[in-house]
Amino acid sequence: ELTPEEQHLLHYIMDSYNKQRFPPEVSKKLLQEAFTAEENFLILTEMATSHVQVLVEFTKRLPGFQTLDHEDQIALLKGSAVEAMFLRSAEIFNRKLPEGHADLLEERIRNSGISDEYITPMFQFYKSMAELKMTQEEYALLTAIVILSPDRPYIQDRDSVERLQEPLLGVLQKICKLYHAENPQHFACLLGRLTELRTFNHHHADMLMSWRVN
């Protein structure tokens, strides 16, 4: 089971993670705006921007993050923002947060001028995440682990980042044993999904480019 300091770390992470909220005006648009491709894409852009701001607030609370070199902080966030956004989207779709919005969000994504070659892998990923029946703790820890990845481009002091990521991996591994005793491979599966998540960095840049061309 978790040591007292691991318990404390987990509670601290969950407390920060639960502070994440889309600003009400963004959620309102999701519900009320017209259903044109342009309007849908604008809403997605606004949600992505607002997600980055929410992500930065969560990241600033990660134990030790503020002690890192400022440029390394930027490099970590730049390198993980897209992955963290798709991880958060998987949680929103799979845990149906908030009620009813998930279907509407899917409708808007599918009618936003983004071509299917990018939409299909997105929803395949959400489905593959749903199969893992992840708890909120797993989503929160995985997001923190994604952010504190020492192998992002332009990181100067990788050791310091690794020292912050390691305890989180340890807690996640124990959580997997506690919540998914029936599947000893569960922790390995989660880490495997991180590799799949990395493919979205390229998809996302291409998708934006192709959307602009269209």
């Binding site: 921007t49 980055v52 930065v56 607030e57 600033k60 730049k78 840049a205």
Partner: peptide, 21 residues
């Protein structure tokens, strides 16, 4: 790509300021 430029601006602003409600 340009999108990353926008991303970096948003990140720098959010890191300095605070969008805390």
């Amino acid at each position: 790509p340009a999108s990353n430029l926008g991303l970096e601006d948003i990140i720098r602003k959010a890191l300095m300021g605070s969008f805390d409600d």
